[in-house]
Every structure is written in C-alpha cells, then in structure tokens.
Design a protein around this nucleic acid. Sequence first.
DNA 1: GCGCTTCGATACGTCCAATATATGAAAAGC
DNA 2: GCTTTTCATATATTGGACGTATCGAAGCGC
Lengths: 304, 304
Amino acid sequence: MELRHLRYCVAVADARHFTRAAETLGIGQPPLSQQIMALERELGTPLFRRLPRGVELTSAGTAFVEDARRILRDVDQATARARRVARGELGRIRIGMINSAPFHPLIPKVIREFRRRYPAVALSLEERTTPGLAAAVRNDTVDAAFVRPLLEEEPDLCSEPLVAEDMVVALPSGHALAARVRIPLLALSIEPFVLFSRAVGAGLHEEIIGACRAAGFAPRVVQEASQVTSIVNLVAAGLGVSIVPASMQRVHTEGVSYRPIQRPVPKARLSLIYRSADSGAPHILNLLALTRQLTAPRERVRRA
Amino acid sequence: MELRHLRYCVAVADARHFTRAAETLGIGQPPLSQQIMALERELGTPLFRRLPRGVELTSAGTAFVEDARRILRDVDQATARARRVARGELGRIRIGMINSAPFHPLIPKVIREFRRRYPAVALSLEERTTPGLAAAVRNDTVDAAFVRPLLEEEPDLCSEPLVAEDMVVALPSGHALAARVRIPLLALSIEPFVLFSRAVGAGLHEEIIGACRAAGFAPRVVQEASQVTSIVNLVAAGLGVSIVPASMQRVHTEGVSYRPIQRPVPKARLSLIYRSADSGAPHILNLLALTRQLTAPRERVRRA
DNA sequence: GCGCTTCGATACGTCCAATATATGAAAAGC
DNA sequence: GCTTTTCATATATTGGACGTATCGAAGCGC
C-alpha cells in the first residue's frame, strides 16, 4: 500500500464519483479505477459500492476513508514538524553554563532572546564547572555550554570565543588595599589567595596564575573553591583576596570591595562550546547566530 | 511522498546503516540512498548525518522517524480495521422490531447470539410499527428490522421470511367462549374486536381480516391499537376479543385467556427486512446467517 | 605511508507499474 | 430506442524505482 492509494481513496469518497475524482487528482479515470481496485484487492474487501450514478462507501470504506484522512493529515503534520525542527523552531536544547556566566550580561540576554525567538524549543539549563561542561557536551548530556577557556583543545568540540572582560581584584571590605583606586598585581604578592583549583578553573585559573607570574610572583592560595560565587563569599569572610571577572561586581556581596587592576589586566574569556558533529544542527546555528548578534562588535573576540 | 519513503526512512534509522537497511528491505543500497535523498529533498532538510561508519539521525530525522513509525502503525491498523469491518466484526448495526417481536423466542435468541458473536459491533434496537420500520430501513435510520408482512412489495428492500406461527384468540378471562378448548373463528362473528388499524398492522391485519372473511364474517372492530401489547391489555380490560400471535401467550396478562383456533388457523408471519443495497453488507449477511441458523428447519418458511 | 576495507554516492541501464488513450458495457433518462 | 452517464477493460506509453557497476572518501592495519 502506498499513500497514493489513500489519497485516491479519499478523493473518490469526497467526489462520490470516479471520473470527477480523477479530474481533481489530475489523472485519468481508468488509472484511478485500477488503483482503487488494487487497494480493494489488498484489503480484501470493496470500499465503494458502484451505483448507476456514482459510487457510495461501504461500511469498510467508511471506516478506511476515515483512517486514511487522519493518516494523510498526520503525514502533512510530520512533514511540517520535520521542517520546523530543521529550522530550529521546534525541539529542545540543553544549555550548560559555568557558575559565573549568568553575571555577565551577555548570557541572560542570549537566553532570554532565544526563548523569545523560539518559544516552541524546550530549553533546559544546567550549571557545572568548565571541565564538567566539556565532558557533558562531549557525551551528549548538554548541547552547548558557556565556559571559560579549556586547558587543551578538545578534538570533537567546537569552541566559539565570545567575550573577554577585564578581571578585578576582590578584597575584604576593610582591607588596606581597598584605599587604592587601581591595584598593581604585585601588591597582592603577600596576600593570601582564594582561587579555583586548576582542574576546575581551567583557562581562567591559568590566566590568573599567568598574570601573577608575569607580575613577578606566585600567588599563595590558602583556599580553593569551585564556583566564583563561593570565592566571593570566602573573600567576604576575610579568608583572602581573589581575582575575579569584572561582571562579578554586579553581585553586591556585603563585605567585598572590587578594584581594577593596573595594566596589563588579566582577561576573563567566555566561549560557547558544542559538538563538532552538531555544527550544522539548527539549534546550535541559531544559538551561535544569536550570541554573535548580541555580542557588541567592540567586545567581540577574534578566534585564537 | 509515499509510504515507501517512510518505510525506508525507518529502516535506515533502525539499522543506522544504508547497506544493512537495504538488505533488510530486500532492495539494493543505491535505490535506498536515492529514495532517502528524494525524501530529504522534499522535506528540505537532511534526516541522516552520514558518518564514516554508518549514519545517525539529525534532530529533524529523529522527529520525522518518530512520526513515520506512528503513521506506518496507523496504516496497518487502518487495514486491519477495514478488514474487521468488512467481516462484520466491527462497526454498528441498528436493528428495528415490531412490538410483538420480542415475544417470539427467535428474536431475543438472535439478538443475544449476535452480541455474543460480534461483541465489537455496537448494536442498537428500535421499536416501531411495521410500516414505520419499512420507512426507517428505507431511509437508512435502521439497518434491518423484524416485521410483519408488508402490504406491498417495497422496491428497494429485501425481505427474508423467517417464521409463521399460529394465531390464537385472546378473550377476556370470564368470557363464555373461554370454556371451549378450540375456537372456530365464526364463533367470534358477534364479538367486538380489538385490532390494529390496517395502516399499522399491515400484513398481520390482512391475515386476520382475511381469515374472518374466509370463515364467513367481517369482524366488528370497536377499538384500534397500534401495538400488540396494547391490544392484549384492552382485551384484558374487557373491550373485546382479538386474534394475536401465539407467542403472546408468554405474556401472562391478568384477565386474558388464550384459545387455539380451529383450522384453518391464521398465521402470524415474521420477516427480516433490509435495504437491497445492503444485501452484501457484512452485518446484514451475519444477521441473516444467524437468523437462518437459529430458525429450526421445521419452522422455516419458504419465500412466497 | 600505502594498501585494504567500509560505506555511501554516482552513473547508467532495465523493467515494472502507473498513467493515458480508446473502447466496452450497463443502467438511467428523455 | 437512443443518448447520456459512468465505471470497467484493453492496450500502449512512459516515468521512476530498482539493479549492476563503479567511484570516492574515510578509517584501519601492517
């Protein structure tokens, strides 16, 4: 059986007339008769009662035509659905992000705009560390993720650099250095540091350590944390100082002061990663297009 | 698009492999590739991602294959349904019957057995007069009906004679004639009659009047009724005597006595009528087969 | 690195089946 | 009784689905 048989069958049922149905279908009457006969042979029962004037449905025909209409509608809907999914208008996307991502204005903006543009796409969000997100994307638990730079190139992943913002020093409020407007990194050489472990902080950790080394010292880490929000809270508790992305200043945590760093200023980079295999996937393309569009040109970072 | 495309698409999705899917389908790999490509062209999007080792579904492919599976299942179900309807195992049948029919053992037996054999057939029952039923069958309000003989042949209806049972005299209990074992019709010549009007009673009315006329008198009708049950009640109320089918004796109405009639005994015939157009319809065939089977051979009546 | 294997795509020929054209047959209407 | 209507049948045609042969790209193993 083919859809042709269903289409013809429905046309005859609508017209109650072979010749007219054939005209509607744009074919001749004999082939229509033959196809209907073939269908009736396959079903093992007549679908139409041939009358002197046109035809009428048998009970089996009534039942079958009813089903055929539904099936043809379903085929159309399946077609439309596949097209919508292909355009990324329908389906789901699982987006991951690091703890600090929501504080950079770009990310909430992207998420909000994505929901607005593709309301039929089920969007789920997940927060993990950068290496955790890389793993999640690789094994298809998450489709795309906003992360800090990875320590090493991942073969199956694509990475789109998005923004690089200045980092700032986070100090306990009463700290002596808080009096200064702009802090040279070397001033922090004797300070206890609250930082990510390298395994968790990935590229961001490297950037900070690198900047300190360039300034001529190795930071003395007294406390590690896996999330920026924790780091800020630990600084507020007076455990030490830290260097965090400037966007963290938006979190007005009691007991923490932020100060800009004297040049050269270390940068906190954000990238969007996704599976290379998905580079043609509509949701990914849409998300990429959106982030590129929402990233102001001056902020945009050239791929390394 | 044709069902072929859906079948091929599902096969490839199952095998994740064109060559193996082609083997499963019993066709070569090149035609399979072509058909899938044609489908992808029609949908305007790839359904499969061609990998070095086999293929995998795109998001559009996942959505489409899901729908395709459902549609193919639906096609099978539609086929099965049409066959079941054709065999009369599924659907509905509207059966009509005259007021006196349920008292003849055949009719309840037929109805009961039909429900038992075809439980998936929705059976509805309707009670009307013989002419009312003929009209109902003709204009497709009822599919088949148990009726008394029609006054004249109806062109679009088929009539299957079923049984002819003796008629008996119904007397008010205290009536003088109740003393007799068997009543000659002529004894009723002076009695007031309770009868159907000719328009309602149709053939049964004719049979009674004809029998009386053969006995040498015309019954004096003092009260008309459109249902046998009413007639029995009116006899019980003492309005007159009547002649009713023997099976009415099963209704033990207070105040009525039944007595057999001396030969020649008028007969109450029962027929099954249905649209000639439906003579091939499965439910009708099943119902006919059932009534014929349940009518004991000795009771069976030869078609006039 | 080179050849081998795997697997889908391409090229081209073949054949079946869907369609077209012409005609027949049955029934209804004037 | 003839015409009209309408579906079925007969035969021819053609498009497209399929088969065979081959290519090309990507891994894989020695």
